[in-house]
Design a protein around this nucleic acid. Structure first.
Lengths: 106, 106
DNA sequence: ATAATGCGTATCCATTCGGTTACGTATTTA
DNA sequence: TAAATACGTAACCGAATGGATACGCATTAT
């Protein structure tokens, strides 16, 4: 029981490529654990640990269906990443010579 | 030179809050190391290590001015983050829409 | 010439991370 | 009822992370 829960932000969550791949997969629709795990060479408990981290940061949700647990994308928290990256967008757009076409709003 | 050469992606780089704060500061313009370090309670060598990581991933560049080293934002690599997060944008907009619909039907 | 400044590097350390295997528990199937 | 399935958790491990202190090396100031 690791109750030394640190300030694990959503930035920390998406730092791991396996977790990003899980999220990418869930973008196509909910999936049970075995289906998610079958896409990786890691063990299933390793995927369970990743799913726990994703769950604890509310990036995914879990719904029990019999003995399966179906995971679903909950991307609201990812908005913090988009909000953070947004101001930098102007920098590389400026280098391309674009006008500041602001389509994004809060 | 002990190179801890892993697949350190830009996602890994922005996982640390200190590094994100450094980048946020550099968005206002280039700055020497001491000015960057003065904003944090950490030691200056700690900031130097963060700057090295940012440098090695080409998120910042260094220019020597006498005995100062001026760091500048090079945000091109950050575009990978924006590209990754972009498809999720539709999802949280849809989620908010679903919530609104749900509330209206109650 | 000597001291002070600016900054990187080396080394060390505690903690966290991401993986494994072993095992427990609930649910479905035979 | 017994076995198989789906999944989480516990315990453990090596490696990476992020911090500190000590030190070295240019460059500037005195």
């Amino acid at each position: 029981m690791p109750q030394t829960e640190q300030d694990r932000s959503v930035f920390r969550v998406i730092a791991d490529p396996t977790r990003r791949a899980i999220l990418d997969r869930l973008r196509q629709g909910p999936a049970p654990v075995n289906e998610l795990a079958s896409a990786f060479s890691q063990s299933r408990p390793a995927i369970s640990k990743h799913l726990r981290i994703l769950r604890e940061l509310n990036v995914v949700s879990e719904q029990r269906h019999g003995r399966e647990r179906v995971y679903r994308l909950e991307p609201a928290e990812l908005k913090h990443v988009a909000d953070w990256i947004l101001p930098y967008r102007d920098f590389w757009q400026q280098s391309l010579g674009n006008l500041k076409t602001y389509l994004e709003n809060e």
